[in-house]
């Protein structure tokens, strides 16, 4: 499903002394089936933007089209349906768990969708397995007895069970250790590859962004500054730094090496790519 954002403005507390314009004329078309990373420092408007994409907050002006349908110009029932097409996982999603068992909690979304029982059951099982948990072992456990990382994954499963065409995740790895982080991002990528859904990942880690994203949307002071491939976006090293952002460590290294070895490709972001490129240019036996 494609999401088209047109002239989107959002002003908080308009007319009061606390008036604050969080979004300024955003125009972006998010392609179907892309893995998009949304980056920007805290307060740049990322959270406000993603809450518009499933109609949780209304724009001051402008709108969002989901497959051509204006999501703010439809009945309330249809708006709720939109929320099933565009699944949003908030930061620290484990704070929204409330049911007695994991299976019941994951079923909350599908139940709201009023699906038949057997389909709910099938989706719950699928979603719990999708986030890398053992359905048989965990389904009857209280979500409050799980570890932090497991609670996080159950909460994400609660959104996945709605089978959203667009999956938005607001810093899904915040507060997790490296193992938990790799686990969650790995599962999201696996799902993306299998289902070809659109993924929008809000992240502060340029390393994760460089590793997973096909496109990067950069927000700064309520504006969408860049929307392009990682290669293109990360070429703006100086501009990104001025916005309080950075590029992956590997990009900095390759840029520094390019001064010595002009033939080196410096559009690389992962350690593995860097190794291959260094070995290609410097030669395998160079330093032996």
């Amino acid at each position: 499903m494609s999401l088209k954002i047109e002239h989107l403005d959002h002003i908080y507390a308009a007319g009061s002394p606390f008036e604050f314009q969080a979004l300024k004329d955003i125009n972006v078309e998010l392609e179907d089936g892309c893995f998009i990373a949304l980056i920007g420092h805290t307060g740049s408007g990322k959270s406000t933007l993603i809450q518009h994409l499933n109609g949780l907050i209304e724009p001051t002006s402008g709108t969002v089209y989901l497959d051509g349908q204006d999501i703010f110009d439809q009945s309330k029932e249809d708006l709720i349906k939109t929320r099933f097409s565009v699944g949003l996982v908030f930061q620290y999603p484990e704070h929204q768990l409330f049911e007695e068992t994991v299976a019941k909690d994951v079923a909350y979304g599908p139940k709201n969708l009023k699906l038949p029982e057997d389909e709910i059951h099938e989706r719950v099982k699928w979603a719990i397995e999708m986030v890398g948990l053992d359905y048989g072992k965990i389904k009857d456990v209280s979500p409050f007895e799980l570890s932090g990382g497991q609670m996080r994954r159950v909460a994400i499963a609660g959104v996945l069970a709605m089978r959203p065409k667009v999956l938005i995740l607001d810093e899904p790895t915040a507060g997790l250790d490296p193992h938990g982080r790799d686990m969650i991002l790995g599962q999201i990528q696996k799902l993306h590859k299998a289902a070809h859904n659109t993924v929008i990942l809000v992240s502060h880690s340029m390393e994760d962004v460089g590793r997973y994203a096909d496109r990067i949307l950069v927000m700064y002071h309520g504006k969408a500054v860049y929307y392009d491939t990682p290669t293109q976006v990360f070429r703006h090293v100086d501009e990104l730094e001025k916005m309080g952002l950075a590029v992956p460590q590997v990009k900095y290294l390759m840029r520094a090496l390019k001064k010595q070895y002009p033939e080196i490709n410096d559009d690389l972001f992962t350690v593995e790519d860097a190794r291959d490129e260094i070995e290609r240019v410097l030669g395998r036996e160079h330093h032996v």
């Binding site: 490296p178 290294l253 860097a274 190794r275 260094i278 395998r284 036996e285 330093h287 032996v288």
Partner: peptide, 22 residues
């Protein structure tokens, strides 16, 4: 044990495995 290593240290590790004298 599931911990991160600074990227440069990791890269040095990978290159050393391939015979680089770092």
């Amino acid at each position: 044990i599931g911990l991160d290593v600074p990227q440069m240290t990791e890269l040095a590790y990978l290159l050393r495995q391939d015979g680089y004298d770092l």
